[in-house]
Amino acid sequence: MTIMSSKILGLDQVTAGMTLAQDVLDASGNCLMVSGVVLTKKQLDSLSKRGINSLAIEFEQELSAEEIAALRNTCITQFEHRFRHVQDDVEMQQLKNILMAYRLESLE
């Protein structure tokens, strides 16, 4: 499985079609472009003219079996923690199991 991750690239390394991972702000804090935008050549030129020299770019990261196992463990631990006060209640355990199974499905 893959997850979305981001890294900072110099503007010269960014090409059209890449997705912006963070808002771009100018020196006075005005938002020039919001995260999630798929960048075009025209936008990149415009950012360059405005003195922007690096961008946070989204990329897919393939996870190893160990990383997936670690994510699953974190997920289970979080569920146990949130449901820590209702361990003896049958219905609440059922709720926990349904929601946890749903969450773990996306981590297979």
């Binding site: 923690h81 949130r82 449901f83 820590r84 006060h85 209702v86 209640d89 219905e91 609440m92 709720l95 926990k96």
Partner: peptide, 9 residues
């Protein structure tokens, strides 16, 4: 809070 209230059955 990070707890779950009881669900009324």
């Amino acid at each position: 809070d990070d707890l779950i209230p009881f669900l009324k059955s």
